[in-house]
Design a binder for these strands. Structure first.
Length: 777
DNA sequence: AGCACGCCGACT
DNA sequence: GTCGGCGTGCTC
């Protein structure tokens, strides 16, 4: 008997293993590892989706159930991907099915429903019943008036277009149609007139009944053609060809294509032409008949970037990002799977793209924390890339102007090979002048967001018809509502956090649990009418700018103005056409924008992110400032950068003036060493949540104790401490941070912690394990 | 999760 | 006596 080992789509600890099913005879030759199936599961035999991961001939279980249905004509997951899922599990502390699902487009996940079958054979869909009808139906099921049938359905769908094709013109013209059938006659002549055209059924001006008549009489047939949902992008881009590399670029290129011994860290200042190196590297591997994955942070996955790849590689490119609909993602996935696309450009999850024969993986802006998924499975794209590069013997390139300390340290230790780009690719371009403005000395109006020097520079640039980018650092910042009389701040009822003001919808929103409420007119605490908006949202800065410089045309770019599809691109396009003088935005304007006419970049508040309780606060601030500074003066005009700060002496800010990554690396490493943080130590965070604060405290102490018992004395266990935002979703959160170097039994100990949640007494306890956490706030 | 089984209290 | 409430345990 052939037995299939199947991982079922029930993400729970108790079901997190392969289940055995009998393979029915008719599927013996057909079923393969990596295919999706539907299997009966549980005492009621409801159908769930599963993935075949192995076969066996024997089984200790006696009466196996059989696979009900196979969903794929060929495997949707490769052997490599199944291996990746196994490898991933050592670090992500998630379920295997969750790892596998991360590799598949959403449309390949089944949806489930139930059918209620009456004695007369009539059927009702459970999901379409009202609550009252559901109660009624349950009773009828119990009295056997109705029976239940479980259904599972793969959501996959393809976009197609139907065309009418005339079978034989002569036959059609000879075919007699009664005179009174006016519409049919009309259609006949219409078809004869357009016999050599592709007539889309959708655009046809005749009813389906008329069309049916012609089909039934075999005068025409319907042809269904599959459409790609992402086709449109390619048409608008004009192609381009390789540029000449300077000696540094050429050197980097030569190294990368020569050896796959170890990963490369390509460290290049803004404008040093990293992208051109990427493009030519990919081109090289394509010539060898191999494929490539190019990862870009989600936020910079703009048409400006993707178009460069489309311009170079045309239809060989598949683009994957979160802005695509499920259908579009599925189409791109199939383009890759079938081999039609050989270059994948995408955000984090594109690291799982089903490419075969991989030649090179490139991770641009490798320091970006968004490469780590902050929901389960908590994988880091860099780790997956290392695994895939190993499997395929592919080259791996990590690129950045400001590498993460982890990567740079590995390069220093010789784990990665360091490749430097120190010159701007366009040699006439000069590095911008960076000036730091000490806001403590701005004696003027305390409430203003603008220093005198920044204002006069803005005026100066606008007069010269040049453009300005202003960045408002929103990290660790939000606008809230406070009463000037009693100091009352409007908080979320579920979370210990102040609500954020959204002027466009005129609501107060909780960014954690999604709670929304109106803006109060009077203070809920003291009834004073002096309840005001605080904080510097971009909207408020925009208003102030408008007041001071009424003649300046301002474009605002933040989460509020980019909510709709393509809003992002439209704003950038407008700015590029000089329809505005100032682009005011949050972090999102720091990445990858290239506007030659921008000669001034102003940072309104450099330090809001600096004091966050996160050991990477300095690193993040430095990266951000370096990045935004790179937006100034990219062409022949010299750029200027003004950074407003209350901490002018902080090294993360001071060192942006000289754009000195080396010095920053040195200082930050010293600090990391002193406090035993990465890259000197590895970290793993355990997050414990419970609706009762006392239980949360008690359980987190228990867990910390358990870890202490199982780890060596060299491991440092911090906490438990309340999270910076101690309560969200009506749950109290406590965190434990383990810092370690070599702990053989760590994985086992952490799995033991997870086992604790299986105890009945811990039913309401939530434990989350995050290896190498990126965000502590 | 989602379903069945089983044990207890409130009813025709 | 039975109906239905939810606590408990299992899923090849």
């Amino acid at each position: 008997m052939k037995i299939a080992k199947i991982i079922v789509d029930v993400p729970l600890m108790q079901t997190d293993k392969a289940f055995s099913y009998r393979v029915p005879d008719e599927l013996l030759d057909f079923l393969m590892i990596g295919m999706r199936v539907h299997v009966p599961f549980g005492s009621a035999n409801r159908l769930v989706q599963g993935i075949v991961v192995d076969f066996a001939d024997e089984e200790i279980f006696s009466d196996l159930k059989a696979v009900s249905e196979v969903l794929d004509p060929e495997p949707v997951l490769t052997k490599e991907q199944l291996w990746l899922a196994d490898e991933m599990r050592h670090s992500v502390f998630s379920y295997k099915i969750s790892c596998l699902k991360a590799m598949l487009p959403n449309l390949l996940n089944s949806s489930y429903d139930k059918l209620l079958v009456a004695a007369d054979g009539s059927k009702l869909r459970w999901s379409q019943l009202t609550e009252a009808d559901k109660v009624l139906s349950v009773k009828k099921v119990r009295s056997a008036e109705l029976s239940v049938e479980y259904i599972a359905k793969s959501k996959e769908n393809r976009k197609t277009q139907k065309f009418v094709v005339v079978n034989d013109v002569d036959k059609l013209s000879a075919f007699e149609i009664e005179k009174r059938a006016k519409k049919r006659l009309e259609m006949k002549y219409y078809l004869l007139r357009h016999a050599d055209e592709k007539l889309s059924v959708k655009d046809l001006d005749f009813s389906s009944a008329i069309l049916k008549f012609f089909v039934e009489n075999q005068l025409v047939h319907i042809e269904e053609v599959e459409l790609s949902r992402t086709q449109a992008t390619f048409d608008a881009v004009s192609s381009d060809s390789a540029k000449v590399l300077n000696d540094e670029q050429q050197n980097a290129f030569n190294h990368i294509i020569k050896s796959v011994e170890k990963p490369f860290l390509l460290e290049g200042i803004t404008g040093s032409g990293k992208t051109e190196v990427y493009l030519q590297t990919i081109a090289h591997f394509l010539e060898l008949g191999k494929t490539a994955i190019m990862l870009v942070p989600e936020i910079s996955l703009t048409p400006q970037i993707t178009n460069r790849f489309i311009a170079r590689f045309g239809e060989k490119v598949a683009i994957m990002h979160s802005g695509l609909s499920d259908g579009e993602k599925y189409d791109e996935w199939r383009k890759i799977k079938s081999g039609a696309a050989q270059v994948v450009v995408g955000a984090r999850s594109a690291i799982f793209a089903p490419v075969e024969n991989l030649g090179v993986i490139i991770i641009d802006e490798e320091h970006e924390s968004s490469y780590k998924q902050d929901a389960s499975p908590r994988y880091h794209a860099r780790d997956i890339a290392l695994l895939r590069a190993k499997w395929h013997h592919a080259a791996l390139v990590l690129g950045s102007a400001t590498p993460s300390l982890e990567s740079r340290a590995r390069a220093m230790r010789g784990v990665y090979e360091l490749l430097l780009l120190t010159k701007r690719a366009n040699e006439s371009a000069i590095l911008p002048d960076v000036e730091i403005v000490d806001m403590r000395r701005e004696i003027s109006d305390q409430s203003s967001n603008f220093s005198h020097v920044l204002l006069s520079k803005i005026k100066e640039k606008i007069e010269k018809d040049e453009q300005v980018i202003l960045m408002l650092n929103r990290r660790g910042y939000s606008s809230f509502v406070m009463c000037r009389e009693c100091g009352f701040v409007v908080d979320c009822p579920n979370c210990d956090i102040s609500l954020t003001l959204h002027m466009d919808t005129r609501t107060l929103n909780c960014h954690y649990c999604g709670h929304v409420q109106g803006i109060p007119q009077t203070c809920p605490n003291c009834q004073s009418r002096k309840i005001r908006y605080y904080g510097s949202g971009t909207q408020k800065v925009e208003e102030e700018l408008h007041e001071i410089l009424p003649e300046a045309r301002v474009l605002r770019m933040d989460v509020d103005t980019t909510r709709t599809k393509n809003a992002h691109e439209k704003i950038l396009e407008k700015f590029g056409h000089h329809e505005a003088d100032i682009l005011l935005g949050t972090q999102m304007i720091a990445k990858g924008l290239d506007f030659p006419n921008v000669t001034l970049v102003g940072v309104i508040n450099a330090d809001t992110g600096l004091n966050l309780p996160d050991f990477r606060a300095s690193e993040r601030s430095f990266e951000l400032l370096m990045q935004v500074a790179g937006r100034a003066g990219r062409a022949d005009k010299k750029g200027e950068v003004l950074i407003q700060t209350f901490n002018p002496k902080h090294y993360a800010i001071e060192l942006t003036k000289s754009q000195d990554y080396e010095k920053f690396y040195e200082m930050e490493m010293r600090f990391r060493r002193e406090l035993s943080y990465p890259p000197y130590y590895f970290t793993v965070q355990v997050l414990v949540s419970h609706k009762d604060e006392e239980v949360a405290v008690q359980k987190s102490y228990e867990i910390a104790q358990l870890l202490r018992q199982n780890l060596t004395e060299k491991a440092k266990i911090l906490g438990p401490t309340p999270r910076p935002i101690a309560r969200t979703h009506n749950l109290y959160h406590y965190q434990i941070l383990v810092k370690y170097r070599f702990e053989e039994s760590l994985e086992r100990a952490l799995n033991q912690v997870l086992e604790l949640t299986q105890l009945r007494e811990n039913k309401e306890l939530r434990v989350l394990i995050d290896s190498e956490p990126q965000n502590f706030v």
